[in-house]
Design a binder for these strands. Sequence first.
DNA 1: CGTAAACTTGACCTTCGTCAACGACAGTGG
DNA 2: CCACTGTCGTTGACGAAGGTCAAGTTTACG
Lengths: 255, 255
Amino acid sequence: MSGTTPPKIASSPDHLSFECVQETCGFKGEECLCRPMHLHFEKAELRAARTIELNEGDQLAPEDFPEPVVFAVLNGVIAVESHLSDGRRSLLTLRFPGEYLDMNRADRHASGEVVALAPTSVKLVPRNVFEELLLLDSNLRRIYWRRATDIMHQQFDHSSDLGKKTPTERMASFIFELRNRMSIPRFVEEFTLPISRQSIADYLGLRAETVSRVLKSLEKEGAVKLIGKHKIAVLDFKGLRKIANGARPRLSNHR
Amino acid sequence: MSGTTPPKIASSPDHLSFECVQETCGFKGEECLCRPMHLHFEKAELRAARTIELNEGDQLAPEDFPEPVVFAVLNGVIAVESHLSDGRRSLLTLRFPGEYLDMNRADRHASGEVVALAPTSVKLVPRNVFEELLLLDSNLRRIYWRRATDIMHQQFDHSSDLGKKTPTERMASFIFELRNRMSIPRFVEEFTLPISRQSIADYLGLRAETVSRVLKSLEKEGAVKLIGKHKIAVLDFKGLRKIANGARPRLSNHR
DNA sequence: CGTAAACTTGACCTTCGTCAACGACAGTGG
DNA sequence: CCACTGTCGTTGACGAAGGTCAAGTTTACG
């Protein structure tokens, strides 16, 4: 691990706990990858899967692992982070509990490092085990394909956010993305913003100051309510959805 | 097809031509997906694969096909296009010859339509055939995995472009992306810009006017040379690479 | 309670989007 | 062959929006 504090191995090699942590990994019912994986626990290779605990800012560099691994997020948030040569930071993609991240590239030249944006536990599954399981279990495979295309479409949506949306629209989209991916039920208004303003900014292609201002402007027009610094409640779903879809209210409308 | 002109079916059902068109599909050697696919031509299902010809602007809507298909680009360019509610257009991802695009989502709610950005031929491979072949052939599978992660990393890079790069930097990145994906050899300076200024703009999150100005500014500082409207030559690779990686020259530096 | 880090607020200024006009070029029809 | 037309690309002038910088305020945590 090339992070500041080396993350500690939490579970021993033969301690298997790939099933959902705390009853849910973030997926609903049959969409959970953990359940079908669970059926394969007897496989010796899966015993190599380890859980590591990360603090905010800890990095996971692929080179740090003897064999290629797939990261499965149990709780917390990880991101792929990249820096331009003058230091500008971007968060290219996020992964929430129940999601996996495969950073292994043939040419070993990845487009960024993996970093924890909050206290996080990550399961490391050797990549060849992952692939083998996919070959053996058609149900697992079906679920995997679905997840993979979903992730791709998420990236598409994110590109749309970054390419053509105003800061306010990006924030509105992000709120829905968060709620979906953290499985917040529709009738629950209030939820936790799991990452810092700076991280939100780096993910949305904005500055932290702009995130601040945009949140305030959304609050002023009654779409959301900020509760402390890390909680937010959606008051007007329809309105916020309209904004997210491009109903063009720019920041200055509400300064 | 929901495009203006309905694309015409070019090859008859039992005419099989999934091998590389004109000796190469854009991949080099073993990276080509077509070669291993070729071994499976006897499979009855593959005979269902059809080639269609598209004009610039033609659309391919998933609903138009009786069964889910994967698009394989033989030549030309296709893109996933999305529109915000007020009409702003984005191109979320591009596919060049030799690349494939899988737009099939479980929930059938895709993030955009597929559209041709130039005269294009596309092979339609039924998705279940595609998956079956992957199960049968480990070599094909290896190559497919590699391509899939490459595409993902391409999306990451693109997010980095959109999120934190200046217009000049985006254009520089785009030039390298084009050259890589169209397999232009390093020593070849001149190549064709296969899509319109407007499409470049919509892909890079800019306006067509800005694309124009940026290209001119890159020409002024000697990084590239514009030859007619649809050709460009890279004169200073190192310099252009530096710009693409974030050496921050903004547009106004060279107005 | 005290300190550092995270977040907010305000004032300013650069950049690129906007709008409008113009130029280049291809296709069309007489 | 040329005038006509429409599309695409270029150029210029201008201003809104968000980045930038600096100073405050709040929060988290020991």
